[in-house]
Amino acid sequence: MWSIGELAERAGVTVKTVRFYSDRGLLPEGSRSAGGHRRYGPEALDRLRLIRSLRSLDLPVPEVSRVLDREEALGEALEEVVAGRLRELGSRMAALRWREAALRLLQDCTPEERPDRLRLIGSMTTPPSTDTLARFWRRWLPPRIPAPVLRSFLDRAVPEPPADPAPGQVLAFARLHAFVSGPCPRTTTTAHWQPAVHRPDEGYRPAVLYEGLGEAYDLASAQLRDRRAPREGEALDCFVAAYARSGGTRDTPAFRRRLSGQLAADPRIDHYWDLTAEIVSPPSGPREPTPGSAHDWLRAALDAHLARTAA
């Protein structure tokens, strides 16, 4: 049996460290001497080395205790703790990357730009939450859309914050956050701030529409990535069919003409899609398609089709 000083010397730690872990129940003593001094057996050295290894990973004492308490399933307990610690570190590192990019954004701007950028950055968390974006779409979209359809659209429309953002992406996300946090303004061309298909008196079935639009946007996004000009084909047919089915009608030349006029009169949120493209695209690469750019491509394809058939 070793004294507390002998155990500390063998482990390469201080007596204070051994006493600290003993007092917290992490390092049980083997016995007491006649004078009441603590005595430790060889197994205490192995346990102390394990404690030091766990603490070197920056595990807090309660987590170390939880691992040691499950000595019979040490591997399983350690795996759970390590996985949780990795998640925590990942969140902290993402926050640090966002803060670094935000600081570079402030460092690289002019003195005149700095107050506005500081205000924008200060209005959101780091890394930012997408809750305000999701709330924006729940206000914009028609009510009572089935949850699976809503989730599918939000997956396309709400950009995820990049794990390692460039300063420009931080600025774009801050501007997007400010944009969706404000009131939805009425446009100068219509008394409504939502498209006609969102208004119940127009007789559309929004769930049918958005389920079809998701497929049309995916098809158009493939065309955009290939840098193809707007054209007739499967993507356009799917786009028109979504509007036709949602309104309980058929895809006819007359319907396509009416649809073109309706889409031209609908309010737009181009600023949202422009900022979204900045967020999801590589800083030095081509712009990634968004539902907004896919919608514009499909509208242009519809107009080109109508012009050709009219000619």
Rank of each mutant, 00 (worst) to 15 (best):
residue 1 M to Y: 12
residue 1 M to G: 14
residue 2 W to G: 00
residue 6 E to Y: 07
residue 8 A to E: 06
residue 9 E to G: 13
residue 9 E to Y: 05
residue 11 A to Y: 02
residue 14 T to K: 08
residue 15 V to Y: 03
residue 18 V to N: 01
residue 22 S to M: 00
residue 25 G to H: 13
residue 25 G to L: 07
residue 26 L to V: 05
residue 26 L to Y: 05
residue 27 L to V: 03
residue 38 R to I: 02
residue 39 R to V: 01
residue 40 Y to D: 00
residue 41 G to L: 11
residue 41 G to S: 13
residue 44 A to C: 14
residue 44 A to D: 13
residue 46 D to Y: 08
residue 46 D to F: 10
residue 47 R to N: 06
residue 49 R to K: 13
residue 49 R to V: 13
residue 50 L to H: 08
residue 52 R to G: 03
residue 56 S to V: 04
residue 57 L to K: 14
residue 62 P to G: 01
residue 63 E to L: 10
residue 63 E to R: 14
residue 78 L to C: 02
residue 80 E to K: 05
residue 81 V to H: 05
residue 81 V to K: 07
residue 82 V to L: 15
residue 82 V to A: 14
residue 82 V to T: 02
residue 84 G to E: 11
residue 84 G to D: 09
residue 85 R to N: 05
residue 89 L to N: 11
residue 89 L to W: 13
residue 91 S to D: 12
residue 93 M to Q: 15
residue 95 A to N: 08
residue 96 L to A: 15
residue 99 R to Q: 15
residue 99 R to H: 15
residue 101 A to S: 11
residue 104 R to Y: 01
residue 108 D to W: 15
residue 115 P to T: 07
residue 115 P to L: 11
residue 116 D to I: 09
residue 124 M to F: 12
residue 127 P to N: 06
residue 128 P to C: 05
residue 139 R to V: 03
residue 141 L to E: 09
residue 150 L to D: 00
residue 157 A to S: 11
residue 159 P to T: 05
residue 159 P to V: 01
residue 160 E to K: 14
residue 161 P to W: 07
residue 161 P to A: 08
residue 162 P to S: 06
residue 163 A to C: 13
residue 168 G to F: 02
residue 169 Q to I: 08
residue 172 A to I: 06
residue 172 A to T: 04
residue 173 F to Y: 15
residue 174 A to R: 08
residue 176 L to R: 08
residue 176 L to F: 06
residue 179 F to T: 10
residue 183 P to N: 12
residue 184 C to K: 12
residue 190 T to S: 13
residue 196 A to C: 14
residue 200 P to G: 06
residue 202 E to R: 14
residue 202 E to I: 05
residue 203 G to C: 04
residue 207 A to F: 12
residue 214 G to M: 09
residue 224 L to E: 07
residue 225 R to L: 11
residue 226 D to H: 15
residue 226 D to W: 09
residue 230 P to R: 02
residue 231 R to I: 04
residue 231 R to Y: 02
residue 231 R to S: 11
residue 233 G to N: 07
residue 235 A to D: 00
residue 242 A to S: 13
residue 245 R to G: 02
residue 258 R to W: 02
residue 261 G to F: 03
residue 263 L to D: 01
residue 264 A to T: 07
residue 264 A to H: 04
residue 273 W to A: 01
residue 274 D to K: 07
residue 274 D to V: 04
residue 284 S to V: 14
residue 285 G to W: 15
residue 286 P to L: 04
residue 288 E to Y: 03
residue 292 G to A: 03
residue 293 S to F: 01
residue 301 A to L: 05
residue 302 L to R: 03
residue 309 T to L: 06
residue 310 A to L: 14
